[in-house]
């Protein structure tokens, strides 16, 4: 599974890359971007299977970039990441085409299982029920 990480925090991108590496050989980090607009370009360039997209970023935030990514690359599964809890943001992300919404504070427990479910291809939107 080819993964693109999009987050304006360099620390977070670094930690996500470590986390992805720990997922094993099935997970490959293929690129990083620090805002939604750069992510749009990267998606076209590296053709990932999954985009881990931060919700709040400068230049273009995740919620703005999400429908554009889904439009330009319908095959890509986008998982929205946010530091803020909030049912309305979660719902907005899912409505805009994200396959999942994960709170950043629990990523070490939730991210790899969510991506494993995507890899298993157990359904059209296997991560959608994940609210943690």
């Amino acid at each position: 599974m080819r993964i693109l990480v999009v987050d304006d925090s360099e620390d977070m991108r670094e930690l996500l890359s470590i986390l992805i590496t720990r997922g094993g050989p099935g997970f490959e980090l293929v690129g990083e971007a620090d805002n939604g607009r750069a992510a749009l370009e990267m998606v076209k360039e590296v053709m990932p299977d999954v985009v881990l997209l931060d919700a709040a970023m400068p230049v273009m935030d995740g919620l703005e970039a999400l429908p554009l990514i889904c439009q330009s690359a319908p095959h890509v599964a986008v998982i929205m990441l946010s530091a803020f809890p909030g049912e309305s943001m979660r719902q907005a992300a899912l409505d805009a085409g994200a396959v999942g919404y994960l709170e950043k504070s629990r990523l070490t427990q939730t991210l790899l299982p969510a991506m494993a479910r995507l890899l298993d291809d157990t359904g059209p939107f296997p991560v959608r029920s994940t609210s943690g």
């Binding site: 925090s9 620390d11 977070m12 930690l15 996500l16 470590i18 986390l19 720990r22 530091a83 803020f84 950043k104 504070s105 629990r106 990523l107 070490t108 427990q109």
Partner: peptide, 15 residues
């Protein structure tokens, strides 16, 4: 919050 969330993740990764 961003720094604290990253710290939580770092803890979770054993760092």
């Amino acid at each position: 919050v961003q720094s604290l969330v990253a710290a939580e993740t770092a803890f979770g990764l054993g760092r």
